[in-house]
C-alpha cells in the first residue's frame, strides 16, 4: 500500500467522521427541540390553561352534586374562597417597593379579609341552622 493510498483513506475516514459528528450535532439539536417544551422552559400559560380547564371540570361535577337546599351556603362559601386572591394582595404589600402598589395591595388585603371572615362566618351561621334541628 502506497503512502498516497494511505493518505486518501485517512482523508475519507476524516470526512466520514466529520459527517457523523455533524449528524450527531443535528440529532442533539432535534432532541433539544422535542425535550425543551416539556421541561422547565414551558410557558406558564399552557400549564395554567391545563390546570384551569381541568379545574372547571372538577367544579362542574362537584357543584352539580350540591343539594339545592344548600345553594345559599354554596354561594356564601364560594364567595369566601374566591377571596384567595388575597395571595396576590399580600405579594403586592410584602414584595413591592413602590408606594402606590403597596397602597393598592393594602386596600386589597383589607377588602379580601372582609370577604374571608364575613363569608366563612355567614356560611357557618347558615349551616348551623340546617344542622341544629336534625334530631
Amino acid at each position: 500500500m502506497s503512502s498516497e493510498q494511505l493518505t486518501n483513506q485517512a482523508t475519507d475516514i476524516a470526512k466520514n467522521a466529520a459527517v457523523l459528528a455533524q449528524q450527531a450535532a443535528d440529532f442533539t439539536m432535534q432532541v433539544h427541540q422535542y425535550v425543551a417544551p416539556a421541561g422547565a422552559a414551558a410557558p406558564f400559560f399552557v400549564t395554567g390553561l391545563t390546570v384551569f380547564v381541568l379545574a372547571c371540570f372538577v367544579g362542574y361535577y362537584v357543584v352539580w352534586r350540591v343539594t339545592p337546599a344548600l345553594h345559599s351556603p354554596l354561594m356564601a362559601v364560594t364567595n369566601a374562597i374566591s377571596s384567595v386572591i388575597i395571595v396576590g394582595a399580600l405579594i403586592a404589600v410584602g414584595l413591592s417597593d413602590n408606594a402606590s402598589s403597596k397602597a393598592m395591595g393594602f386596600l386589597a388585603v383589607v377588602l379580601a379579609s372582609v370577604n374571608i371572615f364575613g363569608g366563612f362566618i355567614v356560611t357557618r351561621r347558615m349551616l348551623q341552622m340546617f344542622s341544629k334541628k336534625k334530631k
Binding site: 395554567g48 390546570v51 379545574a55 367544579g59 386572591i85 396576590g88
Partner: peptide, 21 residues
Amino acid sequence: IGFTLQNNLLIIVGALVGASG
C-alpha cells in the same frame, strides 16, 4: 389574576367559583 401571578391555586379556586356561579 391567577394567570397574571402564575399561581395555580388562584386559577383552580377561580375556576371552581366560576363554574359554581
